[in-house]
Design a protein around this nucleic acid. Structure first.
Lengths: 204, 204
DNA sequence: CTCTTTTTGTCACACCTGTGATACCATTCG
DNA sequence: CGAATGGTATCACAGGTGTGACAAAAAGAG
């Protein structure tokens, strides 16, 4: 059987093309014909690697989910044990910056993820992936805060998740001109306040 | 000339129908024919009140922008002057809850706004409105923090905006099962920390 | 070589979209 | 009354969509 073609690689290429379309045209711009053109393939070929339009999209959201999951677990939580003050802030900051659109690669993933999250509101097909991601994120952050001995880790994790989500949406979408530096410093400020570094200078 | 029909009211009805479609089917579900069906009108009538598909959407995003703007300026900022502690938290909380999807009306507006914000990333048509909204929000919150004599109001406003955005996205989208109560308490917790009420109970 | 299986390519179909161009109705004005 | 105008209703067209059904090509297996 002629299996010259690396099937997995081809699928990856097609998904990558879908990512580019997601970025440039948004969710509704990802049609089979456009994906075929973007990946320099015939629509017949694309349909050979993906049964459906739907299954292509599911593969795409799964891919971005996997990548985000990998970013989440890149740094072991145990390594946070014992850290305090600015060292704790920096360690946590490094972990969470993995999820922020601070470079082109992460920007693409953030956009793709955002498009799917919004699409999932109406299209239940994508919910398993987005819900799994949200659950993983909640768990990892909560655990990290617990190891760092933060009071009420669940509540503080909720706030951090909200901050992350807001920052991602703001910087990905062009309504606030929220630059990379601003995103990072805003996150850092929030982490400092969460970890109760800088003991609240009250000025009166 | 037979002007029996209240033109503005009709336009409002159509926009309301567009809102319902935005909620139930998302941005790409808002077609002229569907809007016509949803508003119990003929497509010819819809096109009589709105030249374009595009101009209908612009009218819709403008409407939601106006409503959000009204919510932002509902409470005068001056009324915050002199407030401290829990009173300040509650006052600010009440203002900001206007923007959160805490009831059905606000939920619809949040969804509509979210759909347009995401759409605006790729479709520059909607940017003027979304950018104006973001600017207004930034200004109002910054002013409020200034009146409440918070240090570095701009930076703290940025964080509050991020929290609001994240909470809205999380509660509107079904990936985290973030209930109304949880949204409110999370916001309140953040405002308490911003206004430095509850002087950080460290437990060791 | 032939056979088999993968990969590519092409039609056609039904459906939905926005839109241009109308016609028709109804009501108010002169 | 007639006429003008706001409102309603259709039709047709070009363009895009996913998909079913194929055929053609290409390359390893025997």
């Amino acid at each position: 059987m002629p299996a010259r073609i690396d099937l997995e690689q081809r699928r990856r290429d097609v998904i990558e093309a879908a990512f580019r379309l997601l970025v440039s045209e948004g969710f509704s711009g990802v049609s089979l014909r456009k994906v075929a053109a973007e990946s320099d393939l015939n629509i017949g070929s694309v349909r050979h690697y993906f049964d459906d339009h739907r299954s292509l999209l599911v593969a795409a959201v799964t891919e971005v989910g996997d990548r985000m999951g990998a970013r989440l677990t890149r740094y072991p939580t145990d390594a946070l044990a014992g850290l305090t003050g600015e060292a704790a802030v920096e360690a946590l900051q490094r972990r969470l910056e993995e999820l922020l659109p601070i470079d082109e690669e992460r920007r693409v993933e953030s956009i793709v993820l955002t498009e799917f999250i919004v699409a999932a509101r109406v299209n239940p097909t994508f919910r398993p992936v987005t819900e799994q991601m949200a659950a993983d994120m909640r768990l990892v952050i909560t655990d990290a805060l617990r190891v760092l001995e933060v009071g009420d880790p669940a509540e503080e994790a909720e706030r951090i998740i909200a901050v992350l989500g807001g920052l991602i949406l703001d910087s990905v979408t062009p309504h606030g001109s929220l630059g990379v530096e601003r995103v990072r410093t805003t996150l850092r400020a929030h982490l400092r306040s969460t970890l109760r570094t800088t003991p609240a200078p009250i000025d009166d």
